[in-house]
């Protein structure tokens, strides 16, 4: 069980915060940065992040058009062969994306019942938003939506200590 990285986007897709945790994800990012597949002038790692935001955005639209009644949370996670992106979107348009390995449970409703008393990724994201983001960033006097240097707040420190306390952090 591993947490690879965390991205936070605002409503318009601007990256407000990004941090890579696991060594394997750091390695992948370094490889990506060096291989330089993207067009000149743009950073491949940024490109990748944009891709992720774009995918989450379109998937949400898709899910919305497939759901007859709009009740219930729409998109929860995207799973591939080797890793999962857990996502949480607030009504204000803030979007959190947490990359983990596949064995991290998304939420209570996922079929894998053996995790009944585990901590679920969506609850973690919800907690990051309610208890860390709002406390550290929104309440910062420098905050104005979309324009804040998150690095200058205590957000990162609080986030690190919270994430590393999780049973599935490493």
């Amino acid at each position: 069980m591993t947490v690879h990285s965390l991205h936070i986007f605002d409503r318009k897709g601007k990256t407000l915060f990004t941090k890579t945790y696991s060594p394997i994800a750091v390695k992948q990012q370094r490889y990506l940065a060096e291989s330089g597949t993207a067009e000149p002038g743009s950073d491949p790692v940024t490109e990748q992040r944009k891709l992720v935001f774009g995918m989450l955005f379109s998937l949400r639209e898709l899910v919305g058009s497939l759901t007859p009644d709009h009740s219930g949370e729409s998109l929860q996670a995207v799973r591939t062969g080797s890793s999962t992106v857990h996502t949480f979107e607030t009504m204000g348009g803030l979007r959190l994306a947490l990359y983990t390995s596949n064995d991290v449970p998304t939420s209570q409703t996922s079929e894998r019942r053996e995790y009944m008393d585990n901590i679920f990724a969506r609850d973690v994201l919800r907690n990051i938003y309610s208890n860390i983001w709002v406390e550290c960033v929104v309440r910062s006097p420098m905050y104005s939506p979309g324009e804040i240097d998150v690095k200058s707040t205590t957000f990162e420190r609080e986030l690190d200590s919270y994430l590393s306390s999780l049973p599935w952090f490493r």
């Binding site: 009504m91 204000g92 983001w133 104005s144």
Partner: peptide, 20 residues
């Protein structure tokens, strides 16, 4: 612009359902 986040966060923490 800050209040609204506070409101959402508080309702999440306390399990209060705000109807959409």
């Amino acid at each position: 612009v800050r209040c609204i986040d506070e409101l959402f966060a508080k309702s999440e923490v306390n399990g209060v359902q705000i109807p959409s």
